[in-house]
């Protein structure tokens, strides 16, 4: 966890999508809505293309949680995008458990292209749910 401001703030990696959720996250910034700078975003064409290993890798590299901002039903590519993404998340959770890490470190929710407020709320709630878990890396690097 980062110790900015004295309190520990969970480091969150967000996977977003170019067409839908990333514009939503952009909008949060454009509206000057604040969330923690320990939230960082990698934007992809579609969340169905996330390898579960990336999620595990991020946690092992020091992120306390990974948030997958899906397109929900709005995905322009794949009609079963939500289903495919949730498979990715489930696989990542299994892999985390096999490594002694909490599956709750991965969360998936739909973020639309105007979902500025919902995104900020997701980040706050996710950080709150990660706090009791403590840092992902029990031993400092």
């Amino acid at each position: 966890m980062s110790t900015i401001g004295g309190a520990s703030t969970p480091k969150i990696l967000v996977f977003s999508t170019h067409n839908i959720s990333d514009p939503g996250i952009d909008l949060a910034g454009s509206a000057h809505l604040h969330y923690s700078p320990t939230v960082m975003v990698i934007s992809l064409p579609c969340t169905s293309g996330i390898r579960p290993e990336w999620i595990v890798y991020a946690i092992q590299k020091g992120f306390d949680g990974v948030f997958v901002a899906t397109d929900g039903e709005e995905c322009a590519y794949l009609p079963n995008c939500a289903e495919l993404t949730s498979e990715v998340v489930t696989r990542a959770q299994t892999m985390l458990q096999e490594r002694g890490l909490e599956p709750q470190r991965v969360k998936m929710a739909a973020v639309c292209s105007v979902c500025a407020d919902p995104f900020v709320n997701h980040m706050r709630e996710f950080a709150e749910s990660l706090a009791p878990l403590g840092p992902s890396r029990k031993v400092a690097a």
Binding site: I4, I25, D26, A28, G29, S30, H32, L33, H34, P37
Partner: peptide
């Protein structure tokens, strides 16, 4: 959009 504007309250962060 995803940094300076979202963290106007935290220049260090």
């Amino acid at each position: 959009e995803q940094c300076s504007w979202a963290h106007t309250d935290d220049c260090t962060g």
